[in-house]
Amino acid sequence: MSKILVIAEHDGSALNSSTAKTVACAATIDGATIDVLVLASEAGSVAAEAAQIDSVARVLTVEHADNDKAIAAVLAPQIAELADGYTHVFGPSSTFGKDLMPRVAALLGVNPVSDIMSVENSHTFKRPIYAGNAVARVEAPAGSQVVATVRLASFSAAPGGNTAEIVSTRVNAARPSHTRFLKLQSAASDRPDLQTASRVVAGGRALASEENFEMVYKLADKLGAGVGASRAAVDAGYVPNELQVGQTGKIIAPDLYIAIGISGAIQHLTGIKDAGTIVAINKDEEAPIFEVADIGLVADLFSAVPELTKALD
């Protein structure tokens, strides 16, 4: 019997959809009982959302002013304390979970498993290595706790409609003050979130300027799509860092991905392997992006993209 504790990701008021995806992964383990843990300053609305996720037995909340921002050094000792009695502790493989879960694992004295893409049994998983150019089947030691992150592009969010019990909990763990949150800068956007959008239009170095990137935004808006970018476009300052797709950016799985002026380096491709349909527009017919594209168009983006945007009127 597996008893799994899933760590909720949230921004203080709303639950991140990564949580329902992590629950979906946990639910693929035979006979699992799943609890969700919400650490927050005020857990109310987040816990209420978590209680609706299918397969969740209970939602545990720990409310404290120090839990207002997700500081791993503050959260990890609380999670390690509450992990007692659980066979597994899962978190999302977002920057939140990647930061937090290895710290939890170290406190519990186990080796963590990063980026679970599928579950074979309670202790055997598949995970990508080498930027997704290989897949490893790994086995956690029998009888030891499994602390893991879940690769979000590999799981669809567990459905809602549940009414799990919400239980307020207390912990004794010390909350260190050596790490202090100062600020978060996010570029406000009305566009669909890159990580959950069903369509994404992404631009690369070839856009050549922040102004030209408008073209990508226009096409995205026409399609109701989120916007992404290659590392080169981010490094050049055309777009903010949170738009980066790839090994060191976001791993996404939209139904439609349109890559514009992106060469298709392995580090970029690893971020889009699970996309439904990949469209590539690139003037170089030898560009590696065409090896993975479902639909390829060899063309100059500066004429093709406006033309495409217009054609979709």
């Binding site: 500081i71 920057t95 790490t179 202090r180 600020k183 978060l184 570029a187 903010p240 860092n241 949170e242």
Partner: peptide, 10 residues
């Protein structure tokens, strides 16, 4: 560099 943007900590 976090999913939501840039977070600064001390």
């Amino acid at each position: 560099e976090v999913d939501a943007g840039l977070e600064t900590v001390e």
